[in-house]
């Protein structure tokens, strides 16, 4: 599991951790049931305080991404991936609608928009 932390980011460190673990789980990099490092070990590896990793893990547990067993460690919880994907898809639809509305306002054609999307997607 790779986690990259920026000390200069506006995003709090615990959020950086939760977001990165979440995306590792959603991308399938961390499969269901996989063990993740203990919060103390992670704190040591990232050279940050224990309370920060503790908070990150607590948030992940609350959101149902991981679960912890005392004395055993923390594991990736069973994910209803279909459900999460559906929710994400809905968000994407909404965002795209906004994009289309904006495009119409300035008279951007569908072809041009697709081209723009292609370029951005490839990046």
């Amino acid at each position: 599991m790779q986690i990259i932390i920026s000390n200069n980011s506006k995003e709090p460190i615990y959020e950086q951790i939760t977001n990165q673990i979440k995306s590792s789980i959603l991308s399938g990099e961390l499969p269901e049931g996989a063990a993740i490092p203990s919060m103390r070990k992670l704190a040591q590896d990232l050279q940050i305080s224990v309370i920060t990793t503790k908070r990150a893990y607590e948030e992940l547990e609350k959101a149902g991404f991981i679960y912890s067993i005392v004395g055993k460690g923390s594991f990736v919880a069973e994910q209803d991936l279909e459900f999460i994907k559906e929710k994400k898809l809905k968000v994407i639809e909404e965002q795209l609608s906004a994009v289309i509305m904006n495009s119409r306002e300035i008279g951007l054609s569908l072809d041009d928009l697709q081209q723009l999307l292609n370029i951005l997607y490839e990046e």
Partner: peptide, 8 residues
């Protein structure tokens, strides 16, 4: 010190 803290 961080290594020590592995022991909760």
């Amino acid at each position: 010190l961080q290594e020590l803290m592995l022991d909760g």
